[in-house]
Write a protein that binds this DNA or RNA. Structure first.
Length: 266
DNA sequence: ATCCAGGAATTTT
DNA sequence: AAAATTCATGGA
């Protein structure tokens, strides 16, 4: 199967810290999301894929005209413009909310290679085997990550009890309802889950619930904004969140993704 | 060995 | 209300 794209970069999108279960083999990216195992490859403006359908690819990689338009409006920000050009084609993904929740619980004072290891081990330990050019693993469903000691054996450390608690608190329908809620409401309900505060809740909102105004603030975003917008001055995370809301509004999440990718790759 | 990593929860000032 | 401490693990 193939899909024509204008101004999309599979590489930038997959390597910008929004998604963790992929491995590059030659020109193909082998991906696992929830129960799906597939591979995808970009050649010019064409996207080739096997193992899933076009609707899934379009949703997962944010290949909507709407997102393209939203990112274009960010070009009015002269500070952001060079970043938009440098990382042209970077998109905000729309992932499975449950897997996104667990992934970002794992992210707490961690790093991307370790998060990848955590989610892969969780899939191997609790998920079903899937055959796709070899044996791979689906991500376990809500309710299936139910053994605290086994969660710890996935190198999750002190985060294990957060994941264990979340496993018995949420269902797929819980997330479907959150998608219908206002950003502030969804964000607040997510923070009732152990291991979920402002930043993790914002990652879930942005990467899996379609809340484009969510602006996750971590140490990297803090560095980026301090340098680009605050003249090197120290700023509190709350202050950064307010700044982002005022400056970019509903499109703050898109701005965040470019800022994060820029500050990590310059 | 020492330090830090896409923070959150708890305790102490 | 704000600041300090604790929380496991792995890689540099």
């Amino acid at each position: 199967m193939e899909h024509k794209t204008s101004e999309f970069s599979l590489n930038h999108t997959l390597t910008s810290g929004q998604f963790f279960r992929f491995q590059k083999v030659d020109n193909w990216y082998y991906c696992q999301e929830r129960d799906k195992c597939f591979k995808v490859c970009q050649q010019g403006n064409k996207l080739f894929f096997e193992g899933t359908d076009k609707a899934h690819i379009t949703r997962l990689f944010g290949l909507s005209k709407q997102q393209e338009k939203a990112i274009e409006t960010l070009a009015q920000d002269p500070t952001l413009l060079p970043l938009l050009k440098q990382y042209s084609g970077l998109r905000v993904m729309q992932r499975d909310p449950w897997e996104t929740l667990v992934s970002f619980q794992c992210s707490i004072i961690s790093n991307i290679p370790k998060i990848k290891k955590n989610v892969e081990l969780l899939a191997q330990t609790f998920g079903k085997q899937v055959e796709f050019e070899g044996q791979r693993y689906a991500f376990p469903e809500p309710g299936e990550i139910d053994d605290l000691e086994k969660i710890k054996s996935c190198a999750t450390g002190f985060r294990a009890r957060y994941i264990h608690a979340a496993n018995s608190m949420v269902t797929d329908s819980f997330f479907e309802k959150l998608k219908e809620e206002q950003y502030e409401t969804a964000h607040g309900k997510l923070m009732e889950i152990p291991g979920v505060a402002e930043k993790v809740a914002d990652c879930i909102c942005l990467f899996s619930l379609g809340k484009t105004e969510a602006f996750p603030v971590d140490v990297w975003i803090e560095r980026a904004l301090r340098e680009l917008y605050f003249n090197g001055k120290k700023v509190k995370h709350d202050e950064i969140r307010e700044f982002a809301k005022k400056r970019w509004g509903k499109n703050a999440g898109y701005a965040q993704q470019f800022l994060y990718h820029w500050v990590r790759n310059r």
